[in-house]
C-alpha cells in the first residue's frame, strides 16, 4: 500500500485486569475511506479488540496508529483528538441528556482536534436530519434506531479519520439494522474510514469493502468482503488459527 493506512495495528495484545490476553497478537492495516468488517464467533475478542483501539482496555504489547500518528500510549480522549472516534455497543448515548446536550458534549471537552466547529455540526446534522428537529428530546426517550443515529452523530462531530463501531446492530429490529447500515455507507461517503465489529455477519458483509475474521483473539482470515460472503461461516469461525 502506497498511501498511509488510516488505521494501523501491529502485534496488539490486551486483556482485563490480571487475566489472560483476550486480544492475542492482532496485526492489520486499513486503507482510508473503506469499511472493514470484523467478524468472528462469540468470545473471539471482537469487542475487546475495538475497546482496546478506543483506549478502554490497557494495551500490553503492540502499537496502534491513526493516519500515521502513534496513539498506543494515549488516553481515550487523546485518541479522539488524534482522529479516532468510537461508538460503543448499545449504551452509547447519555440517556438523561437531551439530543442537543449529547451533541454539545461530544466536542466541548475535546482539545486539539481540528475541524471541530459549526461547519462540522452542519455536515453531521445533514447526514442525520431527523436529529436536528428534536434537539430538546431526552436521549433516553429515543427508539433504538434514533439512539444509534445520535451515537453516530456524536462520534462524527469530532471530525474523525477513523470511526470504530462496536456492534451497531445489537438490539435493533431488521428494518432498523438496514437503516443503520445505510447510515454507515453515508459516513464512508463523507470520507471517514469505518472499522465495523459485527455479530450480524450478513449485514456487515453487505456494506463492507474488506473483512477480517477473528478467532480466539487472532486474525484467522483477511479477504475482500465479496470473497468472505461466499465462504462457509462454520468453516471460517471454527477453523484452526493458521
Amino acid at each position: 500500500m502506497s498511501v498511509v493506512p488510516a488505521l494501523s495495528v501491529s502485534e496488539l495484545r490486551a486483556g482485563y485486569g490480571r487475566g489472560d490476553d483476550i486480544v492475542r497478537g492482532i496485526t492489520l492495516d486499513q486503507a482510508p475511506e473503506t469499511i472493514l468488517a470484523v467478524i468472528g464467533p462469540n468470545g473471539s475478542g471482537k469487542s475487546s479488540f475495538v475497546k482496546t483501539l478506543a483506549g478502554l482496555l490497557d494495551i500490553r504489547q503492540g502499537r496502534v496508529s491513526v493516519t500515521g500518528i502513534d496513539v498506543t500510549a494515549e488516553m481515550p480522549a487523546k485518541r479522539v483528538a488524534a482522529g479516532m472516534a468510537y461508538v460503543p455497543q448499545e449504551q452509547n448515548v447519555f440517556p438523561s441528556l437531551t439530543i442537543g446536550e449529547n451533541l454539545k458534549l461530544a466536542t466541548e471537552f475535546l482539545r486539539g482536534r481540528a475541524g471541530v466547529g459549526p461547519e462540522q455540526r452542519e455536515r453531521v446534522l445533514a447526514l442525520f436530519p431527523e436529529l436536528a428537529t428534536r434537539l430538546k428530546t431526552r436521549a433516553g426517550d429515543l427508539s433504538g434506531g434514533q439512539r444509534q443515529m445520535l451515537a453516530f452523530a456524536s462520534a462524527l462531530l469530532a471530525n474523525p479519520e477513523v470511526l470504530l463501531l462496536d456492534e451497531p446492530s445489537a438490539g435493533l429490529s431488521p428494518k432498523i439494522v438496514a437503516q443503520t447500515m445505510e447510515a454507515i455507507v453515508r459516513v464512508r461517503a463523507a470520507g471517514v474510514t469505518v472499522l465495523l465489529v459485527e455479530q450480524n455477519v450478513a449485514a456487515a458483509l453487505e456494506i463492507a469493502d474488506e473483512a477480517v475474521v477473528l478467532v480466539a483473539g487472532q486474525v484467522s482470515l483477511r479477504d475482500t468482503a465479496a470473497a468472505v460472503r461466499g465462504a462457509d461461516l462454520g468453516d471460517l469461525f471454527f477453523a484452526k488459527v493458521a
Binding site: P95, E101, L105, F109
Partner: peptide
C-alpha cells in the same frame, strides 16, 4: 454549563464520557 453537562454525563455513563474527553 459544560461542567453541569459533564457531571450528568459521568453520572449516566462514565466510560462513554471518557471517550468524549470528559475526565
Amino acid at each position: 454549563t459544560p461542567l453541569g453537562r459533564a457531571m450528568r454525563a459521568v453520572a449516566d455513563n462514565a466510560s462513554l464520557a471518557a471517550v468524549r474527553g470528559v475526565e
